[in-house]
């Protein structure tokens, strides 16, 4: 499945490790939240990138203290109409300051990519061959936004106030 980062298809260098499988000595892997919680100490000690798949009914607070040890977190969209992972993404980025890879998995479709991007995702598993074009097109559809989110874009309100300030100093 194509993986998109920074608007490009990139090679997948992560694997998903099932709960029964032994931990490989090399390579980046995602483990389940349950496994992470059970084997946290071993997993933390591994000097290879490790990530957690956070189910969308889990509280991000559960891994807040672990974030320095995690290189990636995968959030799940079981159906694209289930929007819980948007809140999780914002909390991870904006509340808990997670700066690693935040990946969207599951039913990840073109028309939600912009919402995901704005909520703090930076990696997307998109099940279609033209994933890169689709991603770029979806992100270009809107250029103005009202909500201050962790993506750092200036909101319309901020732009309005800045413009008034400009006008005033010009006057």
């Amino acid at each position: 499945m194509p993986l998109i980062k920074n608007g490009e298809v990139v090679p997948e260098d992560w694997g998903y490790l099932s709960d029964e499988a032994p931990l490989p000595s090399t390579g980046a892997v995602f483990v389940s939240l349950a496994r992470w919680q059970a084997e946290r100490d071993t997993l933390r000690g591994r000097n290879q990138p490790i990530g957690v798949v956070l189910p969308n009914d889990a509280d991000p607070k559960a891994i807040a203290d672990d974030l320095p040890h995690l290189s990636a977190i995968a959030l799940v969209f079981p159906k694209y109409t289930d929007g819980r992972a948007y809140s999780q993404a914002r909390l991870l980025r904006e509340r808990y300051g997670f700066s690693g890879q935040l990946r969207a998995t599951g039913n990840v479709l073109r028309d939600q990519l912009l919402f995901m991007h704005r909520s703090g995702f930076d990696a997307y598993e998109i099940a279609r061959p033209d994933a890169a074009e689709v991603f770029r097109a979806a992100l270009a559809e809107m250029t103005l936004f009202h909500q201050p989110t962790g993506d750092g874009r200036a909101t319309i309100l901020q732009q309005r106030l800045a413009r008034r300030l400009d006008n005033r100093s010009a006057a």
Binding site: Y80, T81, G83, R90, Q112, S119, M142, H146, T149
Partner: peptide, 9 residues
């Protein structure tokens, strides 16, 4: 309007 977090409540 187009709140990214609350489009799929």
């Amino acid at each position: 309007t187009f709140h990214p977090e609350f489009a799929f409540l």
